[in-house]
Nucleic acid binder design. Sequence first.
DNA 1: ATTAAGTTGCACACCTATGTGCAGGTATCG
DNA 2: CGATACCTGCACATAGGTGTGCAACTTAAT
Lengths: 213, 213
Amino acid sequence: MTVQPANAADARAASALPEARRRDATENRERLLDAAQAAIAEQPNASLDSIAQAAGLTRRAVYGHFPDREALVLEVIAVGARRFAEIAASTVSADPRLALVHLATGLWRASVTVRASVNIATNEHYRAAAATAFAPLREKLAEVTRAGIESGALRADMTPEVLASLIEEAAKATLRDERITAGDSELTAIRVVLSIAGLSWVEQGELLAGLGE
Amino acid sequence: MTVQPANAADARAASALPEARRRDATENRERLLDAAQAAIAEQPNASLDSIAQAAGLTRRAVYGHFPDREALVLEVIAVGARRFAEIAASTVSADPRLALVHLATGLWRASVTVRASVNIATNEHYRAAAATAFAPLREKLAEVTRAGIESGALRADMTPEVLASLIEEAAKATLRDERITAGDSELTAIRVVLSIAGLSWVEQGELLAGLGE
DNA sequence: ATTAAGTTGCACACCTATGTGCAGGTATCG
DNA sequence: CGATACCTGCACATAGGTGTGCAACTTAAT
């Protein structure tokens, strides 16, 4: 026989049934996820206690929503994955350069989520799971670089795979940099991506000017 | 009165006197630093035990060389700082673009050191110390971007400070990426830096071709 | 060969963080 | 209002990592 939690909330967390919860409980669960994302975005090893407090709860209460720390982290990844999938899906790759602009913009707006996911990936134990979250973005990016290099719109001095990898890492690095994210301009993030893609800063200006009209 | 270690090696570690050590001891100290650098380059939270084992020693023996974990980490940073200072010092900034090429090349050859330093900096507790290690590089980079933007050799659509920041982060990200560092080409690292600097991939090719002669 | 430095191996105390049990509150829903 | 889901607050067990003491062993230096 298995051990049954005397606590009702704990039981739900263990079996993960998403139905018939009290209104405040669902809110708290959201708060926990948000707090976890924010905390992890700053510190990869944020403690459960700090997360719970940031969410206005006790550490003990966390176990009423998630069976253990790992489940919480995995859920943060899953939320990020959904977010990233949307961005990837909403990107049309007519002009590869414009597709890159769109991707960069989307990521900029999800920068906290990106930072959290990247930080989680620093832990070897979660690397695989985190990679899953970025998978749709990677696929879209691979598609864009392949088409872009083929059509001559992007640089031709490296393989599509390497280029996609570089764009991804440069974008992440830009979003991680507080000296950049502190400023208001998402334009910087866009220009970074276009730079790696092989466009000169003048070409970038022309491309972006054409968008303003 | 202060507590005196009965162990001679422990005593040395506590007072940090660098003189009159046995030959194997100095070797072991080097091995420890190397192992620590490599381990931390892969895992920011590498345990003392794993480091000691990688160096062919016991965890207990570490305390014969360093008073505590923090001292070891700080020494890793210090070693990196020296390395980076050399790179910065050996960079002449006649042509800003060539200065960037030189910096990128130097960092590429010190990639393990860079990764370790970056990983250490992920811990808030060491952030300030790690920043010190990168200080000379940052200064040189600031100098290069200032002169480069002024002379028109580098992009003019951002401030020298932001540009320096972006170059630094992009370079770090490239060196951190296993998909890139696995390949043999340091050329990729160079091209990334030049890309961020605002050069198109064709301009990069011309610049680099001029170097081969 | 003798001496002392260096290392091992084990013991132990300590700390931080995680996960669980339980009694008693507080809020939500019917 | 009544039932119960949820939360608090505490206590406790557990686990992994760090730092130290000490006896015995190994190795370099003279």
